[in-house]
Design a protein around this nucleic acid. Structure first.
Length: 630
DNA sequence: CTTAGGG
DNA sequence: CCCTAAG
């Protein structure tokens, strides 16, 4: 996937090739193409073209080798900057494959890409020898450096190259050595030998050529040698060179007297559409990669022979192939950079985080939100189970929410059990121990043990009146049951409230009086008489720990008022609460009982009450007066 | 702590 | 419900 500027003319010049001399070359034609990993050529993108054109404009007179070098640098650098990770990887893979696997390259490439970079490490295998000897000298980049050094002593580099004048010697040496080690006719450096163009003479089917032969053909075509062993690549290159076109086939090409004859009409030039997904992706990110004029560089190998900077770049290019340490990092960085444009992160991250937060909130977490959530859940659900949930879930926030209910408390207690928290505790209340028992009881009740409930019933049974009362209203029972459930949690809350009361920080969770409670209260009053709140509480409200004697008293007071207000003046029918369905009006029966009790008991109280009530409601006062006053 | 009462 | 005051 690199964009190359094919300059046959340049090639020729550099190579001192016959072509130039023969004048058989067409006018210099630059074709910008991207060489895909598999060696296929793809038309450049607009950007690529533009950039290249710009470059060309700037350097109209490229031809000199030096310039070429510069050009290479230029391109190389640019490539580096613009290069995309995937591409690099592919690139390196290419090299590897090019050397080791030939025909399979295409297939392997795809696979290899997916692999981490183990393979890539192998790439420099030959050079690696040296590399190993000089571990971590300069990190990843140095691979190449070492290789250079090594190349002189250890003839193992794979690549060869060419137009890097500065490195030429080394390169040559390297190539030579490589070639020597390899089987076929060794090809000396560009400078040393003359290409055998005979190979291109007559009719030759590139497909039938061996790698060596292809290399020769390459040399004949471009005037320089190549160590690339990828048949496909070689064929493409050769074909390209001969046809001065990037539109070549990968196979089925026959060279006939220096001209390419494609027999395989089927071949389709890979287009972007046909490019593997990964490649396309990479392509989109890569501005361009160019090889200097005269693509003399064998794609795969060029990176090994460059100045340090170049090498550096090349390393990056190859990324994977060199050192894991830096390469990897670099690679990642580049990837990041490459994708940053797209990934952009901030927003992305934020979104993610938000999502996570939401999720977490929903699932686990933040107390504050949790609480609210818990409330909702509680409302939706009913009974003990929910209680439990809330317990486990809710935690830190000690919110005093009316709607929230018991949720908070349970959880709190739960938390303590699990792990006591200083802060939390301090916030909640002074002595957890006290709470715990209650909580546990509540929990138990909620869980279905109903220990309290039983107690409660027992208590009720104690009072004959109570039983009667329950029997009176069938609905009462129901109410009672409801109470129990709802109560438990609240009970806990209450505890908290108490504790808090001391501080004045928190308020006892508001707990509406249930019908059953009222009944019990009334019964209790009837039984023990008004003012015996503590007793009533002990006996009748044993199970309702959250109801204090004060509560009872208050409630009774309210009941009295209610009874007076509602019962006496029925005519008015002004039942303030009546409008609100949620509030269950106290059954007249109860009110009656209350009234009776009030009348029966202490007159003194009545008196005072009468006086006060008069201020509030004339009717109440009247009722009061009538009954209370002698 | 319990009651009583005011808020 | 809370708070306070008086027993």
């Amino acid at each position: 996937m690199e964009v190359e500027t094919l300059q046959d003319a340049e090639e020729t010049k550099n190579g001192g090739n016959d072509f130039e001399e023969n004048g058989s070359l067409d006018p210099v034609v630059y074709q910008l193409v991207r060489v895909e990993g598999d060696g296929t050529l793809v038309p450049p993108t607009e950007d690529e073209v533009l950039q290249i054109e710009q470059f060309l404009d700037d350097k109209v007179d490229l031809p000199s080798i030096d310039d070429v070098g510069n050009v290479e640098d230029f391109f190389t650098n640019d490539c580096m900057l613009l290069k995309e990770p995937d591409f690099e990887e592919g690139y390196s893979e290419l090299e590897t494959n090019g050397e080791i696997h030939t025909q399979q390259f295409d297939a392997d490439l795809e696979v290899d890409r997916l692999k981490p970079s183990d393979d890539s490490l192998d790439i420099p295998s030959k050079c690696t020898v040296v590399h190993d000897h000089k571990p971590d000298t300069e990190q990843g980049d140095n691979n190449i450096v070492h290789q250079d050094n090594a190349s002189t002593e250890t003839p193992k580099s794979t690549v060869l190259n060419d137009s890097c004048s500065a490195e030429k010697e080394k390169t040559d040496a390297c190539s030579r050595s490589v070639n020597n080690s390899s089987t076929g006719p060794s090809v000396s450096g560009v400078t040393s030998s003359v290409p055998d163009f005979s190979i291109l003479r007559g009719e030759v089917c590139l497909d039938n050529l061996t790698i060596r032969e292809l290399q020769e053909a390459f040399r004949a075509t471009f005037g320089r040698e190549t160590t690339v062993k990828d048949k496909l690549w070689l064929k493409r290159r050769i074909t390209m060179g001969l046809t001065n076109s990037c539109d070549v086939q990968s196979s089925g090409c026959v060279v006939k007297d220096y001209k390419i004859v494609c027999k395989d009409a089927k071949y389709e030039l890979p287009t972007i559409g046909g490019i593997p997904k990964a490649e396309v992706e990479a392509t989109s990110l890569v501005r361009y990669q160019v090889l200097g004029p005269g693509n003399e560089r064998d794609t795969p190998s060029c990176s090994y022979y460059r100045s340090e900077d170049q090498q550096r770049s090349s390393n990056r290019l190859k990324g994977v192939s060199t050192d894991n340490d830096e390469s990897e990092g670099t690679l990642q960085d580049e990837q990041g950079a490459a994708k940053r444009l797209r990934k952009p992160t901030k927003r992305y991250i934020e979104e993610l985080s938000d999502t996570e937060t939401l999720d977490s909130t929903g699932k686990l977490s933040s107390p504050g939100k949790r609480v609210a959530h818990g409330e909702v859940l509680l409302r939706q659900r009913v009974t003990p189970l929910q209680e439990v949930d809330s317990l486990s879930i809710t935690y830190p926030t000690r919110k005093d929410t009316f709607g929230g209910f018991s949720v908070h408390v349970p959880y709190a207690s739960r938390m303590r059990r699990g792990r006591p928290r200083r802060n939390f505790i301090s916030f909640l209340d002074d002595d957890p121990p006290v709470e715990c028992p209650e909580v546990q009881m509540a929990v138990e009740t909620m869980l279905g043990k109903d220990g309290e409930h039983v107690n409660h019933k027992n208590a009720e049974k104690k009072g004959g009146h109570i039983e009667t009362a329950e029997k009176k209203g069938g609905h009462i029972e129901t109410a009672d049951n409801k109470e129990i459930h709802s109560i438990e949690p609240e009970d806990i809350c209450r505890t908290d409230a108490k504790t808090k009361t001391k501080r004045g920080l928190k308020r006892k969770h508001h707990r509406a009086w249930t019908l059953s409670e009222v009944l019990k209260l009334v019964d209790g009053v009837a039984q023990f008489g008004p003012g015996k709140w503590s007793e009533i509480r002990r006996l009748s409200f044993a199970s309702y720990s959250y109801r204090t004697s004060v509560d009872l008293k208050d409630k009774w007071r309210n009941l009295l008022r209610a009874s007076q207000t509602q019962l006496s003046p029925e005519n008015d029918g002004v039942c303030p609460r009546k409008s609100n369905p949620s509030i269950i009006p106290i059954p007249p029966a109860i009110l009656l009982r209350v009234k009776e009790l009030a009348e029966l008991q202490p007159q003194a109280g009545n008196l005072a009450a009468a006086i006060k009530f008069s201020g509030q409601s004339s009717k109440a006062a009247q009722g009061r007066g009538s009954s209370g006053f002698p």
